[in-house]
Design a binder for these strands. Structure first.
Length: 636
DNA sequence: GGAGTGCATGAATAG
DNA sequence: TATTCATGCACTCCC
């Protein structure tokens, strides 16, 4: 057994991974390094079970690996330090020129931005090692910017992937080093201070050939944090600008495999699609399908591409965005928009109380870990490009946590959101900026409204989504175009928040809103009116709160949307599109169709009661006709 | 008295 | 059965 270099330190929680030095083997073995453990005088390295070669030890901080991960050389003293996580800010200072200085040099030169206040977490010192040059064993025999064999990381990633996220999230329990047992998310959330200490681990790569070369630099970390409450998490992270602000946390974890295999969000989406459940049913899908040329893809839920424990996210929180949109949004830009999760606003969320309850799994997967109920300020950009700072915090709840964003009322109001609308949390990479889009409940067409944003990417997203909105052909008449005042007026007497909730259905909202099947019915009142085909009996007109309603003895039924055209000779025709072949068929004006209708059901015109029958008009004529009449689209 | 805060409760859901 | 999460509600603060 080989002795790993002497080290001492404390760790929040971390995954120590041993990777076989034998490139042909590449086996990985990992063990958990738990908070409070101290490593002294080796004992971790041993021989690979697979091939007998010595392991190289990597200490792997699960929580905060960033894209800056890698070996960096101090501009001043030349010391090479492993910058493996955000917390390594405290051993490395980013310089304006993109370089780094070790903290000692930075302090000597007065450049260090790291405050000297006492850490509230009681960590006094930790030990950093100058481990010399990391060896390259990468496939291309080249030390890349990370300085760590990418292939190995990929293998490591595979190993991690295979074992699942929870398998490399050891317990954070201070009190015991006993068998880990089931790991609760709560237990693996490091405190800020813990994260600070975690940086040590990323410095602690022992080199087989020269463990004796390790020089010790004792660096105080009792000055890492002033106080958690003073720490504002700017989600615009990763900019190597040398900004003096402390990048105290990453907005989300970037898996090593994600780093080693960079891919666009579109690609992520492609990958994710393989995991998709049944496509989301949307109201009007019949028409949308029939218009494949204008809407090639359905809006489907996709599992988020990254994040701690993303695999545990419930599908209801999967962001719904099409690959086409992602591709176009990503476009030629170097930036990619990574949809993280979305949430349908509850009455509480949208109410004046100003608290938006975050799904626990999402909060823990994508937002910075917090260990104190007071949480952290979290900066997000809204749909208009305006920055907001919310308090991201949690409440203890039944041995668990309840995560909330506090202070969201102004933002919610500025976006004119209400219960039932969907807030979509995304991230723009590589800027790693969190953005908050939304989709109105009043329309199932994409309305992640980001128009007017100062951010070109947001604008691109906005423009695109808006165009998709138009392209979908889900015509909004003028009376539908804006947020439907009528639909709002359905609840005019109800104040915000709780009382309206009763109408929404309280807990049953999960059925009413979140169910993908139910989304088929997720339309505004006015849109619903358009979809209703009242029986051909004369309604009785009644007045409810100054609104005129038609009352029928029999319930209306959903029918297929058709269009009506005026003949030059007078009279009207009704046109319906076959759900199978997409051809338009002329029907009697009084024909009532079921929601799904195909040519074979065209009992009015035997010559066109088959999908193989040609269109009645040339495509051009039909197009003109439809275009003309779409403007006055009359749905019955 | 209204607004804000923090925890408790219990229905819905997942495992 | 455990967990999640929407919401109720008691308490405190402030005008």
């Amino acid at each position: 057994m080989m002795m790993i270099s002497e080290a001492e330190g404390r760790c929040c929680y971390s995954m120590a991974s041993k990777i076989c030095m034998n490139g042909a083997c590449g086996a990985t073995s990992s063990f958990e390094w738990r908070k409070g453990w101290r490593l002294r005088s080796g004992g971790f390295a041993n021989l690979c079970d697979k091939c007998g070669s010595a392991y190289e030890q990597l200490v792997f901080c699960d929580a905060f690996h960033s894209k800056e991960s890698g070996w960096r050389e101090c501009n001043s003293c030349g010391k090479r330090l492993h910058c493996g996580c955000i917390a390594s800010k405290y051993v490395l200072e980013l310089l304006d020129n993109g370089g780094v200085e070790c903290i000692n040099c930075a302090r000597s030169s007065g450049l260090s931005s790291i405050p000297s206040a006492e850490s509230p977490y009681g960590f006094s010192t930790f030990t950093a090692y100058n481990l010399g040059e990391p060896r390259s064993t990468s496939v291309d025999n080249k030390v890349d910017g990370d300085g760590i064999d990418k292939r190995r990381f990929m293998q490591f990633g595979k190993s991690m992937e295979a074992s699942g996220p929870s398998s490399f999230l050891p317990s954070q329990n201070d009190d015991t080093n006993e068998s880990l047992g089931p790991i609760k998310r709560e237990q693996v959330m490091p405190s800020l201070g813990e994260l600070g200490s975690a940086s040590f681990l990323n410095l602690n790569q022992a080199s087989l050939g020269a463990p004796q070369s390790a020089k010790r630099d004792t660096i105080g970390v009792n000055d890492i944090y002033n106080s958690p409450s003073q720490t504002c998490l700017n989600m615009t992270l990763g900019a190597p600008s040398g900004s003096p602000t402390l990048p105290l946390a990453a907005p989300s974890v970037v898996d090593q495999r994600d780093q080693s295999k960079p891919h666009s969000s579109f690609q992520q989406g492609q990958r994710s699609l393989q995991l998709l459940p049944k496509p989301l049913k949307m109201g009007r899908n019949t028409e949308l399908e029939a218009n494949k040329d204008v809407l090639p893809q359905r809006r489907v839920s996709r599992p988020p591409a990254e994040g701690r424990g993303r695999n545990q996210l419930l599908p209801r929180y999967w962001p719904r965005i099409t690959d086409q949109e992602l591709q176009q949004i990503s476009g030629d830009s170097n930036s990619t928009i990574v949809p993280l999760f979305e949430k349908v606003l509850s009455a509480s969320d949208a109410g004046r109380i100003g608290r938006l309850v975050l799904p626990k799994a999402c909060a823990e997967a994508y937002f910075p870990p917090i260990s104190h109920p007071q949480g952290l300020p979290l900066k997000l950009q809204d749909a208009m490009g305006k920055d907001w700072v919310f308090q991201f915090r949690f409440w203890p709840n039944n041995n668990s946590r309840m995560y909330v964003l506090e202070g969201v009322t102004p933002c919610i109001q500025s976006m004119q959101l209400q219960a039932g609308d969907t807030v979509i949390f995304s991230r723009i990479d590589p800027e790693r900026k969190f953005v908050m889009g939304f989709r109105r409940a009043s329309t199932s067409t994409p309305l992640q409204s980001l128009k007017g944003s100062m951010d070109p990417h947001l604008n691109a997203l906005s423009e695109h989504l808006s165009s998709v909105d138009a392209e979908i052909g889900w015509r909004k008449s003028k009376k539908h175009g804006s947020r439907t005042n009528e639909s709002l007026q359905l609840q005019p007497k109800l104040g915000p928040g709780r009382k309206r909730t009763r109408n929404i259905g309280s807990k049953s909202k999960r059925l009413l809103i979140d169910s993908e099947d139910a989304l088929e019915l997720k339309v505004t009142w006015e849109e619903a009116q358009d979809l209703l085909r009242p029986p051909s009996v004369k309604p009785r007109l009644i007045m409810v709160e100054d609104k005129e309603f038609e009352e029928y003895k029999e319930p209306p039924v959903f029918g297929k949307r058709t269009i009506f055209t005026a003949r030059s000779s007078g009279g009207q025709d009704q046109w319906a599109q076959c759900d199978r072949c997409s051809k338009w068929r002329r029907l009697p004006v009084d024909a009532l169709l079921p929601l799904k209708w195909i040519c074979a059901e065209n009992s009015w015109d035997p010559n066109r009661s088959s999908c193989s029958a040609p269109n009645e008009m040339s495509p051009k004529e039909l197009g003109n006709l439809l275009r003309l009449n779409m403007e006055n689209y009359d749905v019955r």
